[in-house]
């Protein structure tokens, strides 16, 4: 008899089985969720394990050493760190103003009929694989930069060290431009989300003061959203730092530190992509792993900052709208 005084039904035996199944299903879900924590540990551990040789040999000097010479087994990360930071910085300088302006255009000005198509185009831009940008970069962008934009920059701004020196086409600047194109969608879409979360009350208050459209945006929208937009830029930076294929294909891949943006450069991600399978000695491979660890460290820090900024922003704004 069951607790309610009826003959035990097949259903109540099934209940016993299902309690067991419930438990297992829960454990399975928990395990899957914990995989996420396991993955981050795995990534850190495998990279650390891969580079212990180089760590032991070079120590912290690895970061400051600017020579990368596989022939004599001497490795330093400085040119790559430099290349990664400079190309990402160029990308940000181009992409942040364009992305934020586009986000403002989409939220504050564009008529409904234009808005959706533009958003769709930007989403499609985000879907283009890195290697296709690289292909396009090699055969379309680089020749154009070499023959038109760079000579023009050279002749107008050549007095600056950034825009002097010989022009090859493949260059730090080309790398920065291609990365800019690739991080535009994420900067635009995250900024758009943030600008959209600005309460309308703010805008109305500004309009009530007799402000022009631009003043409303400056006073009501930007002053309110600038923290979040900064977060969007940092998120874009995180993506830029790790961009690999397209950069590898246009940056020139030379481990040099040069003031000129027309000179070829090299990034952490590109050198790994190019030399990993060719690494002949254990120390060489280990040095590449250490570059990977450096790259991971930088992107992790940047991403954590971005997530924290975006989180606090959305936390403070969602309650109000």
């Amino acid at each position: 008899m069951d607790p309610l005084g009826r003959p035990r039904s097949p259903a109540s035996q099934a209940a016993r089985g299902s309690r067991w199944a419930d438990r297992n299903f829960y454990l399975l879900a928990l395990l899957a969720a914990l995989t996420i924590l396991g993955l981050i540990a795995l990534v850190g551990w495998e990279l650390y394990r891969g580079c212990h040789l180089a760590l032991a040999k070079f120590g912290p000097a690895f970061l400051a050493n600017s020579s990368w010479d596989p022939v004599s087994d001497v490795y330093g990360a400085l040119p790559f760190i430099f290349g990664t930071l400079v190309s990402s910085l160029i990308a940000l300088i181009i992409a942040v103003p364009l992305g934020v302006a586009t986000a403002l255009f989409l939220t504050e000005m564009a008529p409904q009929a234009i808005r959706q198509p533009v958003i769709t185009v930007i989403e499609m831009l985000a879907a283009v694989p890195s290697v296709i940008f690289g292909l396009w970069g090699i055969f379309v962008l680089i020749p154009w930069l070499r023959d038109h934009l760079f000579p023009w920059l050279h002749s107008t701004l050549g007095f600056l060290p950034f825009f002097s020196g010989p022009i090859y086409g493949v260059s730090m600047l080309a790398g920065g431009i291609i990365v800019a194109i690739m991080i535009l969608p994420i900067i635009t879409s995250v900024s758009r989300e943030i600008i959209r979360s600005v309460p309308n009350l703010q805008r109305e208050a500004a309009y009530a003061l007799g402000s022009t459209h631009w003043e409303v945006i400056r006073i009501a929208v930007l002053s309110y959203a600038h923290r979040g937009i900064f977060g969007a830029a940092v998120l874009g930076l995180g993506r830029a730092l790790g961009e690999t294929m397209a950069v590898t294909m246009v940056i020139g891949n030379r481990p040099e530190i040069s003031a000129s943006l027309f000179a070829p450069g090299y990034t952490l991600a590109s050198v790994i992509a190019n030399e990993f399978t060719e690494a002949t000695s254990d120390l060489y491979l280990s040095a590449l792993f250490e570059l990977g660890l450096v790259l991971l460290g930088i992107t992790l820090i940047v991403n954590v900052i971005a997530q924290l900024m975006l989180r606090t922003f959305s936390g403070s704004s969602t309650g109000k709208t």
Partner: peptide, 20 residues
């Protein structure tokens, strides 16, 4: 209690109660 049986008795599955 439902029909004299404690519905919160330890070991009694809530799903079982809800079927009744």
């Amino acid at each position: 209690k439902l029909f004299g049986e404690d519905l919160y008795r330890p070991g009694l599955d809530a799903a079982e109660v809800r079927r009744r």
